Simulated scan of single mutants.
Amino acid sequence: MTDLKRRRFLISSALGVSALALSGCDRLEQSPEVGGVIRSAEKLTMSAQRLLLGRDALAREFAETDISPAFRVNGTSAPDGEAYAQLVEGNFANWRLKIDGLVDRPLELSLADLKKLPARTQITRHDCVEGWSAIAKWTGVPLGSLLAATGLKPSARFAVFHCADELEKTLDGSGRYYESIDLIDAFHPQTILAYRMNDQELSVGHGAPLRLRVERQLGYKQTKYIMHIEIVDSFAALWGGSGGFWEDRGYEWYAGI
């Protein structure tokens, strides 16, 4: 099976499982037995993909001529709230990215600080769980280089991305959007914090001022409006405890393609 065919097969499989989660997540949540089977299958999928493709295997990169003429705004089109509106009005001059948690040297960086760091540009395909795809060019800072600078503690396992947007106020009453990946994906060479898209500054609709690109996973993992990265050893203290806003509502945590 070619890399492209394998990728399409994995996407189709992921879409099928996600559709099941969307249509019956409430019932599944009420069944510990079924939930346990799904979580076991998810771990098997992650292990199999990493075994077959390798931890550092790259997602396909495309040419400039392959860039899609249109790229949908996935998820939130603009966060609510006065705080974010003020950041937009000030062209994000007062925005700061905080990186803390299980680190020896917490960081606080402005957008200008990030743009001074070595950057990576990649042209990749975004595959949405809703069934659409688009190719775009992304430029940003490799996440691994930032995390390496913080001095990760031995117990560190996951990077959690806390975002500016709030959706439905459920679970703990917050609804604050968040997402997470493990440190293997965080240090993958194509995992970047993107601030440019198609040679333009990232728009509000596409996640300004900063969004995650973790290219070997589905679109809902490409979290937007990042404000804070927290390094943790588990998800136990985070809202629903499943590692992400949509994961707390039935999606798979590992969305590999």
Score class of each variant (00 low, 15 high):
residue 1 M to R: 07
residue 1 M to C: 05
residue 3 D to I: 08
residue 7 R to T: 14
residue 9 F to T: 06
residue 11 I to E: 14
residue 11 I to P: 00
residue 14 A to V: 01
residue 15 L to K: 05
residue 16 G to R: 09
residue 16 G to W: 12
residue 18 S to G: 12
residue 20 L to T: 07
residue 23 S to T: 15
residue 26 D to F: 13
residue 27 R to T: 09
residue 30 Q to N: 04
residue 35 G to Y: 05
residue 36 G to V: 01
residue 36 G to I: 06
residue 37 V to Q: 10
residue 38 I to Q: 08
residue 40 S to H: 09
residue 42 E to K: 08
residue 45 T to C: 11
residue 45 T to G: 03
residue 45 T to P: 00
residue 49 Q to M: 09
residue 49 Q to P: 02
residue 59 A to I: 01
residue 63 A to G: 03
residue 63 A to C: 02
residue 72 R to Q: 14
residue 73 V to Y: 12
residue 76 T to E: 15
residue 79 P to D: 11
residue 80 D to Q: 13
residue 83 A to W: 04
residue 84 Y to R: 03
residue 87 L to V: 08
residue 88 V to W: 12
residue 90 G to I: 02
residue 91 N to H: 15
residue 94 N to L: 07
residue 95 W to N: 03
residue 96 R to D: 10
residue 98 K to E: 15
residue 100 D to M: 02
residue 100 D to R: 07
residue 101 G to L: 11
residue 101 G to N: 12
residue 102 L to K: 13
residue 103 V to E: 01
residue 103 V to N: 00
residue 104 D to L: 12
residue 106 P to F: 04
residue 107 L to C: 00
residue 108 E to M: 11
residue 111 L to D: 09
residue 116 K to T: 06
residue 121 T to N: 03
residue 121 T to Y: 05
residue 126 H to E: 06
residue 130 E to T: 15
residue 135 I to P: 08
residue 135 I to T: 14
residue 140 G to Q: 04
residue 141 V to M: 09
residue 142 P to S: 01
residue 144 G to A: 13
residue 145 S to V: 03
residue 147 L to K: 01
residue 147 L to I: 05
residue 148 A to H: 06
residue 150 T to G: 02
residue 150 T to M: 05
residue 151 G to C: 06
residue 153 K to G: 04
residue 160 V to N: 08
residue 161 F to T: 06
residue 162 H to W: 15
residue 162 H to C: 12
residue 162 H to G: 04
residue 166 E to W: 11
residue 167 L to P: 06
residue 168 E to I: 14
residue 168 E to S: 15
residue 169 K to V: 08
residue 171 L to M: 08
residue 174 S to I: 03
residue 178 Y to C: 09
residue 179 E to I: 05
residue 182 D to L: 05
residue 184 I to W: 09
residue 184 I to D: 10
residue 186 A to V: 03
residue 190 Q to E: 05
residue 191 T to D: 12
residue 196 R to E: 15
residue 197 M to T: 04
residue 200 Q to H: 15
residue 204 V to C: 07
residue 206 H to E: 07
residue 206 H to C: 00
residue 210 L to A: 09
residue 213 R to S: 02
residue 216 R to S: 06
residue 217 Q to Y: 14
residue 220 Y to G: 01
residue 223 T to C: 15
residue 223 T to F: 09
residue 225 Y to G: 10
residue 227 M to S: 13
residue 233 D to A: 10
residue 235 F to D: 10
residue 236 A to Q: 07
residue 237 A to P: 00
residue 237 A to I: 01
residue 240 G to F: 02
residue 241 G to P: 08
residue 248 D to I: 13
residue 248 D to Q: 08
residue 248 D to V: 13
residue 252 E to T: 08
residue 252 E to N: 14
residue 253 W to N: 03
residue 256 G to Q: 07
residue 256 G to C: 07
